[in-house]
């Protein structure tokens, strides 16, 4: 064994596992997407790019693509901003801090499917927690049909963002505690106001945490499926459908495996193009820190 092959030897387990559970399934999906396979009964005929051509003329798919776009936009902004604010607030030690932290982290213990069930109750017309709350506050005018055709997509996003915020808060809290207190003090001595300390010291130093939080948000937004399934089943009239949900429906309800696989490939490509730059940035930062 020489120095040239030794590194590969160490990489082998990871490569083998990734190959079996990552690369091969992806390639297989890519192949299936170019067939007209129906169900699991047998391989379909090779049809080239037919599925893709059909896909980009499919009103339902294009609608789900639009909704996923809204998911991504909301997920990039809402959980990240809220999480930074919450992390800054609960970072300080005060009486009951650990209880409050637990309350904020709790959603993390729930899967998106469960979050969907809980929030479906919250959004329930008239008897749901949200409506009851607004009625109690005398704000009846604000009540809309939360899971209806107009607000539906945003209501689902809000529920998912609740859980994503919990995740991002954990990440930002870890990021905050990694910033040495002396840096903040040095900045104060240097004449920085609290605002300047935040924008010129704290925020830039949260960049590694931000990379993790943002790539996670992107992935969750692009892959969202279960929460739509448990909250609205894509309804009403497909107004809350997202690409992941579309893929699931085409594959497992309509048994159009080839067509579903084509959606899967589109999702994979979208995820890769958006997330890879972030992951690269993260890898570079780690390399720098460990070198």
């Amino acid at each position: 064994m020489n120095a040239r092959y030794t590194p590969w030897l160490f990489l082998m387990p990871a490569i083998v596992i990734y190959g079996f559970f990552g690369a091969i399934p992806i390639l297989q999906t890519f192949y299936i997407s170019m067939t007209d396979q129906v169900g699991v009964a047998g391989a379909g005929n090779f049809v080239g790019l037919t599925n893709y051509i059909e896909l980009f003329q499919d009103e339902y798919f294009l609608n789900s693509l639009k909704n996923t776009g809204i998911w991504v936009a909301c997920f990039l902004v809402i959980p990240n901003t809220l999480a930074v604010i919450i992390a800054l607030l609960v970072k300080r030690t005060f009486w009951g801090a650990s209880i409050i932290k637990t309350v904020f982290f709790l959603p993390l213990a729930l899967s998106f499917a469960i979050v969907g069930v809980i929030w479906a109750w919250i959004y329930e017309p008239d008897v749901g927690l949200l409506d009851q709350l607004l009625i109690g506050l005398g704000l009846d005018v604000l009540i809309v049909e939360w899971l209806g055709p107009h607000a539906g997509n945003f209501s689902v996003i809000a529920a998912a963002a609740w859980r994503q915020t919990a995740f991002a808060t954990v990440i930002y809290l870890a990021g905050l505690s990694a910033i040495p207190q002396e840096l903040i003090e040095a900045a104060k001595v240097d004449g920085a106001t609290r605002r300047q300390v935040f924008f010129r010291i704290t925020l830039p130093l949260l960049k590694p945490a931000n990379t993790i939080a943002v790539s996670s948000a992107l992935i969750q937004a692009l892959l969202a499926t279960e929460i739509v399934l448990t909250m609205t089943r894509g309804g009403p009239f497909g107004m809350t459908e997202v690409v992941g949900y579309r893929m699931y429906m085409e594959t497992f309800w309509n048994y159009k495996f080839g067509y579903g696989a084509a959606i899967g490939v589109v999702v994979t490509i979208m995820t890769a193009t958006m997330v890879v730059p972030y992951v690269r940035r993260m890898a570079k930062a780690m390399e720098r820190e460990w070198s």
Binding site: P180, L183, E185, A186, A187, L205
Partner: peptide, 9 residues
């Protein structure tokens, strides 16, 4: 400061 407290960024 003891550990210099230089701004790493």
């Amino acid at each position: 400061f003891q550990n210099y407290a230089l701004y790493p960024h």
